[in-house]
């Protein structure tokens, strides 16, 4: 574990806590894409299967359990909780996220490290996570004024993978033959998708004005 990876995990944890705070306390999911939340639940479900087959550390296991629990809880709140679901703007959250799942799965069948059930699912989860934020970014462009909590949620979610990139660079230079092309490229694509959002987020923060993404 290095400081970059810890910062990344804490940023990821914080982003989810922000979203849970928003949904649980003000019982609102306005501006949040259910499709992105469903994609993330699928990402964690296909990536963290190894909590049943192996043990790496208490930290690793606890974080995986939290990510699994929180992602499915958020999806449940947005689909079935009768107060929260009313604030979900269904007609704006129209990104066809099913069109992301199949290509990622096919790509995982073609490009992977080992052709085993767990490895292909794990690779699928990496590709899917890279694009999972797309429905949320599209929704942010449509909902004119983004509320602060949602903006911060997306920012820390993007920041987590950016820290991971620093972590991979650090590990590349400090560990023998440490390389993970598939993980690295997926992580770079994922972070690149946030570039535009980061620009407008920092700009709104510096001008202390509301976050607005151009349509």
């Amino acid at each position: 574990m290095n400081i970059f990876r810890l910062a990344g995990d804490m940023s990821h944890l914080f982003s989810i806590l922000l979203l849970l705070l928003k949904i649980h306390t003000i019982k609102s999911c306005a501006g949040v894409s259910l499709k992105t939340q469903e994609l993330y639940a699928l990402v964690f479900a296909t990536r963290y299967l190894d909590i049943f087959t192996g043990y790496i550390s208490l930290y690793n296991t606890l974080m995986k359990m939290f990510f699994l629990w929180s992602s499915f809880t958020i999806v449940w709140y947005m689909r079935y909780h009768n107060v929260v679901r009313r604030s979900y703007d269904k007609d704006q959250d129209t990104f066809r996220h099913y069109f992301l799942i199949l290509p990622c799965f096919i790509l995982a069948l073609l490009v992977h490290e080992k052709f085993t059930f767990l490895e292909v699912l794990w690779t699928f989860s990496l590709y899917l996570e890279a694009v999972a934020i797309l429905p949320q970014l599209v929704l942010l462009q449509r909902t004119r004024n983004v509320d602060n909590l949602t903006g911060h949620y997306v920012f820390f979610l993007g920041a987590y993978r950016s820290f991971y990139i620093l972590n991979w660079i650090y590990r590349y230079f400090t560990e023998q033959n440490y390389y993970k092309w598939i993980t690295w490229i997926s992580g770079l694509v994922q972070t690149a998708l946030y570039a535009d959002f980061f620009y407008y987020y920092v700009k709104s923060w510096r001008n202390s004005e509301r976050l607005q993404l151009p349509a």
Binding site: K64, W122, Y164, N167, E175, T183
Partner: peptide, 10 residues
Amino acid sequence: EVSHEAKDEL
């Protein structure tokens, strides 16, 4: 450090 194989990252 953990070997290249193990998936020690989240």
